[in-house]
Amino acid sequence: MTGPENRCRLVLIVPDIADAEEKQKIIADALRGGDVASVILPQYGLDDGVFQKHAELVVPVIQEAGAAALIAGDSRVAGRSKADGLHISGNSAEVAEAVEAYTPRLIVGGGNASDRQHALQLGEIRPDYVFFGKLEGDIKPEAHPKNLALGEWWATMIEIPCIVMGGTDPASAVDVALTGAEFVALRSAVFADPSAAASVVAAVNAMLDEKAPRFDG
Rank of each mutant, 00 (worst) to 15 (best):
D35V: 08
A69K: 04
G45C: 00
P60D: 12
I26Q: 14
Y44K: 02
H54N: 09
G33M: 08
A78N: 05
G73S: 05
K82L: 15
Q43V: 15
L86V: 14
G73H: 04
D48K: 15
I71H: 05
V95L: 15
H54A: 12
D47Y: 15
Q52K: 09
S92V: 15
S92P: 07
D47S: 15
I13H: 00
Y44F: 14
A67V: 02
P60N: 11
I88H: 08
A96E: 14
L41K: 01
H54R: 10
A83M: 02
R9K: 06
E94T: 09
I88Q: 04
G90Y: 07
D48N: 10
I40N: 05
E97T: 14
G90S: 06
A55T: 12
G79V: 06
G34D: 01
S92D: 07
E21L: 12
Y44H: 15
A28N: 07
D19A: 04
I62N: 01
E97A: 14
A65T: 08
D48S: 15
I26F: 08
H54D: 08
P42Y: 01
R32K: 13
D19W: 04
A18H: 02
A28F: 09
E94Q: 14
V58N: 02
D48T: 13
V39A: 05
Q63R: 14
I27Q: 01
I88D: 11
H54P: 01
L31V: 09
V77H: 06
P42N: 08
L70G: 05
Q63Y: 09
G33I: 12
V59W: 01
D84K: 06
A68I: 09
S81D: 04
S89T: 10
A93E: 13
S89Y: 08
